[in-house]
C-alpha cells in the first residue's frame, strides 16, 4: 500500500499519548496530581510508598516520548501539500513537535530522578517534585506555537479539495489558546492556574490529547485521499 509510513507515523502520536497516560498518569499515579500546596512530608511519603510503581511507570512513559516526532513528520508532509515547496510552516511545525517531545521528556526525567532515592532527605524530594511539575507544565510555548502554526497552515490552504477540513484549523487555534494557561504555574500554589489547576492542568492536558487524536485521524484520512487521487 502507498504511503504506509505516513499512516504508521500518524499513529505513533497515539503511542506518545498512551505512553504518557498509562505510564505517568496511571502507573506512577500522577492523576490527579500532587497539590503544589502539599507539605514536604506528604510529597516524600507519596514517593516512598509508591516507589516501584512510579519508577516503572516513568520507564514506560520515557520509552514512548520520541514517538511524537514521526507524528510531527507525518503532519509536516500534509502541511507541505498545503503550502508547496517553501514549507515554512511545515518546518516550523516539525521543530515545535521536537521541542514539545523534549519538554515532556525533561519533565518526566525529573519525575524519575525524584523517585530514584525516596529514602533521602524529604526536602530534596520536595525540590525535585517541584522541578518535575514545573518543568512539565510551565513551558507551554512549544505546544502552543505548534498548534498555532498548524492552524495557520490549514486555514490558509486554498487548494481544492482541501487537505484538512477548515474547522480543524480553527480547532488548532482553540488548542493554542487552551494550552497557553500553563505559563503562570510558578506564580500560584492553588487555584485554577496552579500546576494541578482546572485551567493550567486539566483543560490543557485534555486539549493536547484531543488534538493529537484528531490530527492523527485527519492525517490518515488525508493520506488515503491522496493515495486514491494517485490511483
Amino acid at each position: 500500500m502507498k504511503f504506509q509510513s505516513d499512516i504508521l507515523s500518524a499513529c505513533s502520536g497515539l503511542l506518545f499519548a498512551v505512553g504518557l497516560l498509562v505510564g505517568w498518569g496511571l502507573l506512577a499515579g500522577s492523576l490527579p496530581p500532587l497539590s503544589p500546596s502539599a507539605t514536604a512530608e506528604v510529597v516524600a511519603s507519596f514517593y516512598q510508598q509508591n516507589e516501584v510503581r512510579i519508577q516503572f511507570g516513568l520507564g514506560v512513559t520515557l520509552a514512548s516520548m520520541a514517538f511524537l516526532v514521526p507524528f510531527g513528520s507525518a503532519l509536516a508532509a500534509q502541511i507541505r501539500r498545503m503550502e508547496g515547496e517553501r514549507a515554512v510552516l511545515a518546518n516550523a511545525q516539525l521543530g515545535c513537535a521536537i521541542l514539545t517531545a523534549g519538554v515532556v521528556t525533561m519533565g518526566m526525567t525529573l519525575f524519575a530522578i525524584a523517585s530514584f532515592r525516596p529514602e533521602r532527605n524529604i526536602e530534596i524530594t520536595y525540590l525535585l517534585n517541584d522541578m518535575a511539575w514545573i518543568a512539565f507544565t510551565m513551558p507551554v510555548s512549544g505546544i502552543m506555537v505548534w498548534m498555532l502554526v498548524t492552524g495557520i497552515a490549514i486555514v490558509s490552504d486554498r487548494s481544492a479539495p482541501a487537505v484538512f477540513p477548515r474547522w480543524s484549523g480553527y480547532f488548532c487555534f482553540l488548542g493554542a489558546t487552551l494550552t497557553a494557561p500553563g505559563f503562570p504555574v510558578a506564580l500560584f500554589k492553588s487555584g485554577p492556574f496552579a500546576w494541578n489547576g482546572l485551567l493550567a492542568f486539566w483543560v490543557a492536558l485534555v486539549t493536547a490529547f484531543a488534538w493529537i487524536i484528531i490530527m492523527s485521524v485527519l492525517i490518515i484520512r488525508a493520506v488515503k485521499q491522496e493515495a486514491e487521487a494517485l490511483g
Binding site: W167, Y170, F171, L174, L198
Partner: peptide, 26 residues
Amino acid sequence: AEAGAWVFLFGDMSIFGLFFATYLYY
C-alpha cells in the same frame, strides 16, 4: 465568517465560562 470559525469562537467563550464559574464558586 465560516462554520469552522465558530468551533473556535464557542470553544474559547465556553472555556472562559468555565473560568467565570470557578471564580464565582470561590
